[in-house]
Lab assay of single mutants.
Amino acid sequence: IDAAQIVDEALEQGITLFVVNNRLQYETSRDSIPTELLNKWKQHKQELIDFLNQLD
């Protein structure tokens, strides 16, 4: 699994991931984030931050 897949998966569930001051953040209108997704974010945090920083 790679960062792009995780970002896409989040988007499919209505969650936008982004980076502020090198910290992973998210925006969503959902009430809660699925635990499975949160765990993936934690496991791949640095990859996600690097990936999202490249997009900007």
Rank of each mutant, 00 (worst) to 15 (best):
I49G: 01
Q25N: 09
N53C: 10
T28S: 10
N21R: 05
P34R: 03
Q5H: 10
T16I: 15
Q13I: 09
R30A: 08
F18Y: 13
L48E: 00
E36Q: 08
A10C: 05
S29N: 12
L24M: 03
N21K: 06
L17I: 08
D56H: 13
Q43M: 12
Q46H: 08
S32M: 08
L11M: 12
V19S: 04
D56G: 13
W41I: 15
K45A: 15
N53Y: 08
F51I: 03
S32F: 13
S29L: 11
N53R: 10
A10M: 03
N53S: 12
D50W: 09
I49S: 02
I1L: 11
E36M: 07
G14T: 02
D2A: 12
T35A: 13
Q25K: 11
D2H: 12
S29D: 12
N21G: 11
D31R: 08
F51R: 02
D8A: 15
T16H: 15
N22K: 05
Q43I: 11
L48Q: 00
P34V: 03
L55A: 10
L55P: 07
I6G: 00
F51A: 02
T28N: 05
T28P: 09
L52G: 00
L38A: 05
K45W: 15
D8T: 14
L48V: 06
R23T: 15
Q13S: 07
D56F: 11
Y26F: 10
L24R: 00
I49T: 05
D56E: 13
Q54D: 09
L24V: 04
L17Q: 01
T28K: 03
L17H: 01
P34G: 04
Q5A: 13
K45G: 09
E27I: 14
W41R: 00
T16N: 08
E36H: 11
L11Q: 13
T16D: 06
G14H: 05
E27T: 13
F18W: 06
K45M: 15
F51S: 01
L24T: 00
Q25V: 14
A10V: 02
E9S: 04
A4S: 11
T28V: 04
N53I: 13
Q46M: 07
N53H: 07
I49Q: 02
N53E: 07
P34S: 06
L38Q: 06
N21Y: 05
L24N: 00
E36N: 09
F18E: 05
D2T: 15
E47W: 05
T35W: 10
L48W: 01
Q46D: 10
F51H: 06
K42W: 13
N21W: 04
E12W: 08
I15W: 03
H44Y: 15
F51Y: 15
T16S: 08
Q46F: 07
Q54N: 11
L37Q: 03
E9W: 05
N39P: 03
A3H: 03
E27W: 15
Q54F: 11
W41M: 12
W41C: 05
A3G: 04
S32R: 08
D8G: 14
N21C: 14
D2F: 13
Q13W: 15
D8N: 15
G14R: 04
L48N: 00
K42F: 14
L38E: 06
R23Q: 15
K40N: 04
I6Y: 05
I15K: 01
R23P: 01
L37Y: 05
I6D: 02
A10F: 06
L17C: 05
K45D: 10
E9A: 05
D56S: 12
P34W: 02
F18I: 14
K42Q: 13
T35D: 12
F18M: 11
H44C: 06
V7L: 08
L55S: 08
P34E: 04
A10L: 03
E12F: 08
D50S: 09
S32Y: 12
L55Q: 12
Q43F: 08
V7T: 03
Q13V: 06
V19Y: 03
L52R: 00
L48K: 00
I15V: 10
K45R: 10
L24F: 03
E12H: 11
